[in-house]
Design a binder for these strands. Structure first.
Lengths: 187, 187
DNA sequence: CAAGATTATTGATCAAAGGCAAAAAATCAG
DNA sequence: CTGATTTTTTGCCTTTGATCAATAATCTTG
C-alpha cells in the first residue's frame, strides 16, 4: 500500500499524527470481479477508498438494476445516505474487476472525527466532494440529450466502456440499452 | 428572532458558547417578494437559514429559467457548490414571497469551524442533509413519470402550489409547463 | 373598472426514446 | 473446438411528453 499521504494527497495534507490514527483503523480488502461490497437493505457502515480497480453502485427498480455511479482508483465509495442516516441502504456496490479497497468502519471513524479535527476536516471534504459530484450528475443527466450524455461519458470516463455492460452504462445514462446501442452505432 | 436553539433544534443541540459565537456573526435580512438573494455568476459567500417565507433556487438554460429547488421555513439555503468550491455560482435564488433570512458569511463562518468543533459539526450536518436531499431529488426525478412526480410534490410540498408559477414548478419537475397544466386538468 | 400584460389552458402535430422481438455477435463451459 | 448461454444489435411499432399556436383566465395599473 502507498502511504495515506499519497492516497489522500488530492484531498488534503494530513498531519502525521492524524495519518497514524487513520492507519490504525483502516483495513485493506481485495475484491474479486463481481463481488458485492455493499449490500442493499443493510446499513452501510463503511467508507471505502479505491486503490485499484473499478466499482459500480446500483439499485433495483422493479427487477432491473440501475447504475447510480462508477467509482475508480483514487475515489471514495460508500452508500453515503445510509452511512449518514444509519438507515438501510437502498443501493448496492460491486467490483467490476479485481479491486483493492481501503475500508474505514463507521464505528471507528466517528470517534476519530470527534477526537481529531483534521480527520473531521477530511470527512467534511469527502462530503463536499460527493455533494458536488452528485450535483454535476444531476444537471448532467437532466439537461442533455441521450447522445450528449453518452459523448460526455466517453470524454470523462472512457475506461468504463470496456468494463461495464451496455445495460449497466445505459441505466447510468438514463436511457434504455437499445437506445445506447443505437447511439454507439452512429459514432 | 427566536433563539438559535429553537431554530437549529431539528439539526442538533449546540452548547451555549457555540450558540453565542454563531449569534455574534449572524445577520438578519428581510427579502421582498421577487428579490434576488443569490446572484448567478458571483461567488456565493453565504449560507442562509429561512425563518419565514418561501424561496426558489434556479438557473438559466438557454433563455428559460430552470428551478433547482424550493426552500422554506426551517431550511438552509445556499449555492452549496459555489460556497464549497469558491467558484462563481451557476445558480440564483429569489424570494417567492416576503422572507426572513438569517445569514452566515463564509469569511466569518469558516474560522468558527476551525475554532469550534460543535460549529464544525453543525456544518457537517448541513452538508449531510443537503446531500441526502439532493440524492432523493435525483432518484425522484429520474424514475417517475411526469404525473407521479407532480403527485409526489403535492404530497410533500403542497404549499408551493400557491406561491410558484406553473412554469417554475414545471421546470422543477422536469417537464414543460403545458404538460404540467394538462396533468393538473386530469386531477 | 377597463385595457393591457402576463400566465394558464387547450388543441394539434411531432420527435425522441422506450418496449418487444428476432437476429447476430460475443463469451463461457465442458 | 463446439454447443449453450449471455450480451448486443437491429427492426418495427408505440408512448410520452415537447413544441407551436390559439384561446382563456388572471393579474396590474392607470
Amino acid at each position: 500500500m502507498e502511504s495515506l499521504q499519497q492516497l489522500f494527497g488530492r484531498f488534503l495534507a494530513l498531519p502525521q499524527e492524524s495519518q497514524n490514527k487513520l492507519e490504525s483503523i483502516l483495513t485493506e480488502k481485495t475484491l474479486q470481479k463481481g463481488e458485492l461490497w455493499i449490500q442493499e437493505g443493510e446499513i452501510c457502515d463503511k467508507i471505502g477508498f479505491i486503490e485499484r480497480g473499478l466499482m459500480r453502485s446500483f439499485y433495483y427498480k422493479d427487477k432491473k438494476d440501475i447504475t447510480i455511479s462508477f467509482s475508480t482508483k483514487g475515489e471514495f465509495i460508500s452508500s453515503m445516505s445510509s452511512f449518514i442516516s444509519r438507515m438501510p441502504s437502498y443501493e448496492s456496490a460491486e467490483a467490476l474487476e479485481i479491486c483493492q479497497v481501503i475500508e474505514f468502519q463507521y464505528d471507528q471513524l466517528m470517534p476519530l472525527l470527534i477526537e481529531d479535527r483534521h480527520v473531521a476536516y477530511l470527512y467534511q471534504r469527502i462530503l463536499e466532494q460527493n455533494y458536488i459530484e452528485l450535483e454535476e450528475h444531476l444537471i448532467f443527466s437532466k439537461f442533455k440529450s441521450a447522445k450528449e450524455r453518452y459523448l460526455e461519458l466517453m470524454e470523462t470516463k472512457p475506461y468504463i466502456i470496456h468494463k461495464a455492460s451496455v445495460g449497466q452504462i445505459a441505466s447510468y445514462l438514463d436511457m434504455s440499452l437499445e437506445t445506447l446501442s443505437r447511439i454507439r452505432a452512429t459514432i
